[in-house]
Nucleic acid binder design. Structure first.
Lengths: 127, 127
DNA sequence: CCTCTATATTGACCTCCATCTAAGTTTGGA
DNA sequence: TCCAAACTTAGATGGAGGTCAATATAGAGG
């Protein structure tokens, strides 16, 4: 973070000069990368990815935690811990209604990640 | 993994019965989740995500390691370590030509992840 | 060959993470 | 008011992960 200028799009133009290739054109700047990485990291655990998938796949658009715990081989506190990480990564939202707690996917954030991966240059800007 | 039947698509039909909602319809099965999670995990580190972005964004379609090391605040062995993880996750490919080593993105795998996130139910099957 | 350069591997270190048990909190009902 | 159910939080622990310095390997060039 010194000779690299960035803009509001979270992109960075790399400096030229190297051993064998011209320049790195445009790519994610460190700040944007950190935010994206947090989301990817949250999905980087099999239990959390399955949790996210189950939440996103639910026809009602939300899932009660009580419906999730039985599907895994880990104890309820562990499920709670993973859901917390998914929340902190901004991938799911939650709401308490009565005794139960319901989780919803945050689709705008998921689409943003999808767009990042769909862009040939991984800049987050498709097309 | 017991009462959950899966098929070749990497999807799982969940059993019914729960406290407050019907059933979890269809979602990633544990095996598919593990494979996907490995890729997401590889992108879950800021250094690795930036590396991947730099590699994917390069106009030549490939990048010399020598062009990458200077862009980060970590020592060369650390860059090498991160590139190895990206390789093992199947996100990049590499080839040695003379003294230098070049890395290329594996776009089919990246598109697959993109499709997973684009699907409203995170099944990996868009539409 | 010998050596220099470019990467990779090894080993050590320390932090972070996934998991559990046990205890706390919130809510609804007897 | 008291208890039980549904989560969540706290504390502990074993293991995985990121980093570096030191060493190894692979080519290119003399």
């Amino acid at each position: 973070m010194s000779n690299i200028g960035s803009n509001a799009d979270g992109l960075t133009a790399s400096p030229s000069g190297a051993c064998c290739a011209p320049l790195a054109s445009v790519s994610l700047d460190p700040a944007a990368a950190a935010d994206m990485a947090k989301m990817f990291k949250a999905m980087g655990d099999p239990v959390r990815l399955r949790l996210l998938s189950l939440i996103a796949a639910h026809p009602e658009g939300e899932v009660c935690v009580c419906d999730l715990t039985d599907l895994f081989d880990v104890a309820p506190p562990t499920i709670s811990y993973h859901l917390k990480l998914l929340r902190e990564a901004g991938l799911v939202d939650h709401e308490r209604r009565g005794t139960w707690v319901y989780y919803r996917p945050m689709r705008d954030r998921l689409y943003r990640l999808s767009a990042l991966l769909a862009a040939p240059d991984l800049t987050g800007i498709p097309k």
